[in-house]
Design a protein around this nucleic acid. Structure first.
Length: 245
DNA sequence: GCGACAG
DNA sequence: ATCTTGTCGC
């Protein structure tokens, strides 16, 4: 019971109607900071990075959190909660937030950075899952998604990108930020050197207290031979393990 | 009305 | 996200 929300009034209540959820997201976006505000160097090997991911089975949502330091696991927790609402693009945090908060309540470690599965600022109202939970905790947070929710890549992503490539994602008409604002990046964390198949990039965006650049730096820094950063991979595996029966 | 949409 | 075995390629 160490990790408690600093802003419980922003809790993602699944009972709210759509307009109320969107209204809350606008308020959260106003509270969020998309600039670096950390007490530690996020790339330092001593930094505690928490990967957060969810799994669903039957009528329950399972959230798993794996805290890493360097390449080692420091703590692993999980929590199960009844699924309240279906997945609705743009309102993901209201479906998964409850399980995440329950898992955070089980955490005894105090992470320096939280890495969520999904988007942060790459969101219609700049209030994706990573922003919502990050603001509630008032902790540095970023979102790592496998697909792009909205925004416009500065350069075409139709052709395979070389490993290490980073393409800015800019706000367009469907995002509340001024057109052209860099709300995140497509990050090619892994790519095959040869062959027919190719790997898609990650879509990394700041959730809270991080700049788009630093969020991409952290995601890239946490990768170790796989497309997904280690904290996310480990949380993925743990969620899958304990999620099913 | 059309299009488009994290997990 | 989830339902699911084999299979293509390095």
């Amino acid at each position: 019971m160490t990790m408690q929300p600093v802003r419980p009034e922003f809790a993602p209540d699944p009972a709210l109607d759509r307009a109320e959820m969107e209204s809350l997201q606008r308020e959260i976006a106003e509270t969020a900071t998309f600039a670096d505000d950390l007490s530690v160097d996020p790339l330092d090997p001593h930094t505690l990075v928490a990967g957060v991911d969810q799994g669903f089975s039957d009528g329950t949502a399972t959230s798993a959190i794996v805290v890493t330091r360097g390449g080692n696991v420091v703590e692993r927790v999980h929590a199960r909660v009844d699924t309240e609402i279906p997945y609705i693009p743009g309102l993901l945090s209201f479906r998964e937030g409850g399980a995440i908060l329950a898992a955070l309540d089980e955490l005894s470690t105090d992470p320096d950075v939280f890495m969520f599965d999904g988007s942060g600022r790459i969101h219609f109202r700049e209030a994706g899952l990573a922003t919502h939970i990050g603001v509630m905790l008032d902790a540095p947070a970023l979102g790592v998604a496998k697909n792009l929710l909205c925004g416009q890549p500065r350069e075409s992503l139709d052709e395979p990108l070389p490993e290490g490539t980073r393409v800015p994602i800019e706000a367009d008409g469907e995002v509340t930020a001024p057109d052209g604002t860099v709300i995140g990046h497509a990050v090619q964390s892994r790519q095959y050197d040869s062959g027919n198949r190719y790997i898609n990039p990650l879509y990394v965006s700041p959730g809270h207290r991080l700049s788009a650049e630093t969020a991409a730096d952290i995601a890239e820094h946490c990768c170790d031979g796989y497309k997904l950063p280690e904290p996310t991979r480990l949380a993925d595996a743990h969620a899958a393990d304990v999620s099913r029966k």
